[in-house]
Each structure stands twice: as C-alpha cells, then as structure tokens.
Amino acid sequence: MTVDLNLVGAKGAIAEAAEGKWGMSIDQDICTGCQACVAACAMENNISFVGEEDAGYGRSQHWIRIERFWEGAYPEVKATPFQPMLCQQCGHAPCEPVCPVFATPHSEAEQLNLQVYNRCVGTRYCANNCPYQVRSFNWRDYHTIPERGNMVNGTLVFPLHNQFNPDVTVRRRGVMEKCTFCIQRIHKAQDKAKSEGREVEDGEFTTACAQACPANAITFGRVDHPESLVSQLTHQKRGEKHLEELNTLPRVTYLKEG
C-alpha cells in the first residue's frame, strides 16, 4: 500500500497504514541492563572491536546499546530504567532520503531500513540525520589491524576471524553500518519455511539480542499479525515509541511503568 507521507496532518492515517512487518518490543521494567544483548549482537553481526583509542574518539561500534539517564538535581538523583537503544527501523526514516548514493534504501519486501555496504561511500550524512544516534561508521579496517594478528610462519593470522558469522558481511573501512533486525535470520527462517511449504511461524526464530536476553525483555516478531506475541505486547497500554513526534514511525515499542 502506498501512502503519501508528506500529507500534513495525516499522521494517524499513516501510522495505521504503515504498521510495518517486523517489530520489536522491549520491556524496560524487566531489563536489568546486563548488556547480554550488546555482546550477542556483536558476535552475531561481526561488529568490530574498535579499541581503546578510537573509543575515546567516540567511534565505538554497537548496533544496540544500553542507555541510562538521571532525573532530578543532585543529591536527589534518580536513575531512569535501562533503555536498550537500537535502530528503530523507521517506516518514515530520516536517514533514508539524505543518502546521496541510495545506499540506505527502504526494503519494500521486509519493511526494514537497509544498509547496502557495497554502495555506501561514507558521507556519514545518514548518521547525522538519525534522531536515535544508532548508526556507526567504520573509521578503519578494524578486523585487519596488524597488531591484532599473530605472525605464524611469516604470515599474519587473525584468530578472531574464526568467529565471524559467514551470513553477515564484514564491513570494510569507510562504510556506515547499523542494526538490521538480524535480516540474515529472517532470510534463513523464510527460506526454511518456504522449503517446507509453510509460512514463518511466530517465535520460530528471533534476533540475537532477543535470544540472549536472560530476562526475556526483548520480543521480536511480526507486528502486522495481531495474534503474534510481539503484536500483543506492542498494543499494551504501557507501550510507547521513542521520538514519535518526529513522525518516524518506529518499529520498536518500549514498555514501561506498568
């Protein structure tokens, strides 16, 4: 279905029409901030370890991070609930129209924001325009930094290359990257379902962060299927979407203060 997203005052209509396909709900009431999702995401998606120096420059690469804020003035400060922040896979994404080379298109088939690494030329315009600050840039070829290799019989070998996920591209220097909602797992599940002649079932697969969460705070699935678990959680009263007033139509719902 096509909707004119530039129509003034049509926000409700847009939200209803553009519900999306894949969605996530994050329960902040039961998130303990353990960062298991951050570690799992890094392992699943071949995310680089940037090292101490580059992290100091603010070049850390995480597709999901745990945010914490403080409320009130000292000494009466109160910590807000832990807030895992990842790409919201916006239905009306600010990052998409600014790319001069169309390296961050919107997937019509999966209703996700894509990042096409081979097309990206590294203008970093998308990261500047992302209100959630979830995009990260590869400032170096972090996976082939010589100091991280071992010299074996005159050739450099990188032991950490053995844990790369073959289903995910290893990003090279000069490209932007971000959370993909584990699109490799989506494709794998769809491929398996198709080979067995059925539809993908709810809960058949999940993203790396949701799988690793010990408190089951993260739920992933089809938001356009009313009977799916994530759809039911998303439509709870305590659900809210971040920066919804920007009309980005985020696909991640945060549940808190039940």
């Binding site: 997937s107 088939a109 999966e110 996700l112 690494y117 591209t169």
Partner: peptide, 12 residues
C-alpha cells in the same frame, strides 16, 4: 518482483 529486486534480499 518486490522481493526479488529488494536490496536486502542479497546485501546485508
């Protein structure tokens, strides 16, 4: 056609 010409079908 949408599925088969989607960038995300091959590039991720």
């Amino acid at each position: 056609l949408t599925k088969l010409t989607d960038c995300g079908t091959c590039h991720y």
